[in-house]
């Protein structure tokens, strides 16, 4: 039995939803979403520093999605758009939650999980030092990233991240990342 993405999406879509999207993640989509959300946050959030933090986290999480989505092979992919991903922004009490979801090849889970655990266990000072070290020493990857997205989000939110991997089939899982601002 496959993990049910639709059911999962509707569950994510509960509470005070600011924005929810399910489908193809393209550069144009990101541009449009950022424009819409920029205007929306302007109305919603009074403290500019919170608005900026949230916006920054959105940029990184959407671009992480864009760079790291694995597409399901054609045989099983009829159901999903190319470069399929999910993201939802909700308000939970005083906090904002940014959730993203995407397919990942099962053999990539362990390294990602190790990275997540490492980043989530670090203090702000450790994150800052790691950020500077990577910034200063790493070259661009083939995907055009620098491997700083997760560290940047953890640094800005004091490590308030949460994640889950749900098996989809023997080769792929669905990866869900929640970031609290």
């Amino acid at each position: 039995m496959h993990f049910d993405i639709d059911q999962y999406y509707s569950r994510m879509n509960s509470g005070e939803v600011i924005l929810a999207y399910k489908g193809s993640i393209s550069s144009e989509l990101i541009t449009n979403v950022l424009e819409v959300i920029d205007a929306k946050l302007e109305d919603l959030i009074i403290r500019k520093s919170i608005k900026k933090k949230l916006y920054n986290v959105l940029v990184e999480s959407l671009q992480n999605l864009y760079h790291h989505i694995d597409d399901l092979p054609d045989s099983t992919n009829g159901k999903f758009d190319v470069h399929f991903g999910i993201f939802v922004i909700t308000k939970e009490g005083e906090r904002y939650k940014v959730s993203t979801g995407n397919f990942i090849r099962n053999d990539k889970i362990q390294p990602l999980q190790d990275r997540l655990e490492r980043v989530m266990s670090m203090s702000k000072e450790e994150l800052k030092n790691l950020y500077k070290q990577i910034l200063n020493n790493q070259d661009f990857t083939k995907k055009g990233g620098v491997g700083l997205g997760l560290i940047d989000m953890a640094k800005r939110t004091d490590g308030q991240l949460d994640y889950q991997f749900r098996e989809y089939n023997e080769d792929y899982s669905f990866f869900n990342l929640d970031i609290y601002v």
Partner: peptide, 13 residues
């Protein structure tokens, strides 16, 4: 700068 992403941070450096 009002915002910059991690991809830009490298170029700015």
């Amino acid at each position: 700068l009002e915002y910059f992403n991690t991809s830009s941070s490298k170029c700015i450096l």
